[in-house]
Design a protein around this nucleic acid. Sequence first.
DNA 1: CAAGATGATTAGTAGATACAGATTGATTAT
DNA 2: ATAATCAATCTGTATCTACTAATCATCTTG
Lengths: 245, 245
Amino acid sequence: MNKPVTPKYMVVHGEILKRLKSNHYSVGTRLPSEESLAGTFKVSRVTIRKSLEMLVDAGYLASRQGSGYHVNCLSPQRETCLASFTDAVLRKGRVPGAKLIGIDVPHPDPPEDISDVFDAPVARIHRLRTVDGEPELLVSTWVPTDLVAGLAPDAFPEFGPDQSILRILSDRFNLAWSRACETVHPCAAPNDVAEHLGIAPGTPILSVACTAYDDTDLPVFHDQVFRATPIVFNLSRSARKTDPI
Amino acid sequence: MNKPVTPKYMVVHGEILKRLKSNHYSVGTRLPSEESLAGTFKVSRVTIRKSLEMLVDAGYLASRQGSGYHVNCLSPQRETCLASFTDAVLRKGRVPGAKLIGIDVPHPDPPEDISDVFDAPVARIHRLRTVDGEPELLVSTWVPTDLVAGLAPDAFPEFGPDQSILRILSDRFNLAWSRACETVHPCAAPNDVAEHLGIAPGTPILSVACTAYDDTDLPVFHDQVFRATPIVFNLSRSARKTDPI
DNA sequence: CAAGATGATTAGTAGATACAGATTGATTAT
DNA sequence: ATAATCAATCTGTATCTACTAATCATCTTG
């Protein structure tokens, strides 16, 4: 029964983030000073600084010496496969959807690039992700079968915040990753993909492949996404904190 | 003449990074302990920790409680337009090249998506970047003419480390950016692009557009890249330090 | 010889303190 | 009214201290 003690700065970070998201501190306004927040949360200035620094790194806040911490935005994420598509869509005020096309446990004949990554038998979850009902991404998620015992269609709701594959894998199957490699390829839409996405076959689209690994460098899951829409990244100062070009 | 004082942790960070790159500490080995490094650099443990933390965030080092700091790698960058292509190629042990196709100061008729971004007249630098002599990227860089007074072909060497556009813009023209937005589009290779890249017209390729802004949110330069090869990202733990999905 | 206990080493967390440097707003002088 | 000055406020940097928790090599014991 060794309870994992959450560090204070994590608790405070979570609390402030919750306040940001619930508009307790709204965009454009100034946060109370470090000193004041330290008093509020009953921690030292060092601790509150660590929490705030994390929020600055993540893009939520901006700090100016002599002025204070200002609320930047509430959606600082980059759009990669590992940033939750569900969350990204929700943040834009649109409605995300997930149509389950099929589940194969195990998949009888995984393509070579998949069997190259995983030694064990793998399951495939095949879904069409939508925005306001319009098809956006065609996603194949591959996971070793022994990591997702009891995988069934009911784990994949078509609507609501629980359709995020990352949340499903982490919450229901206790699956954690710590490192990932993502590649973006150009390709011509194959017939079946084009049909799902509602575009003409042969149209240039993006194929995004992503493999995630755990602490021991074992592959945990592989995501393969087809999308006709561009990927957008917002790079900030913090992205080049070290090794400036 | 107020000299900008560099904080100690920055100085130490730079020094350690230099040692890493010069193989003073080689990949796989362990760094001296925090205590020891603090002694070496004549700073407190808190300060040395800040420097090391930056290197961990950047991906150079990994820290394990009770064990120490281990040298991870020497090339932790993500491959975006804002990560220097020159550096990325050099790190792989290949030879980067840059063939200058043309410079227009100012460009007589910039396309709409460019004039939408910049109010002022803009210059265009048009280059073909190569790896081991093979064409890799077709790049158009757009910059307001008043930011690059005296722009001439001799600023763009075909070989060597000084072909990086980012280095050229920052070193020779004192041009600094602090924020950028990058988008990755799929497209079919237009005839002229295909010819430069040595591929068939109509082949699906990537079009990467990137606009960089300075502190005051004024656009500083715009990069437009065509590439037939995939983009690779390496994501690490630190990329989801906050707001885990 | 092998398994387990032990102690030294090392990073992680947390606090108090001090001063420097930037910003802001109020006060004062012109 | 406007400008200059000053003081209060707030973040940035830096040090010292103390304790916790994970790791690793060594020693002990069965």
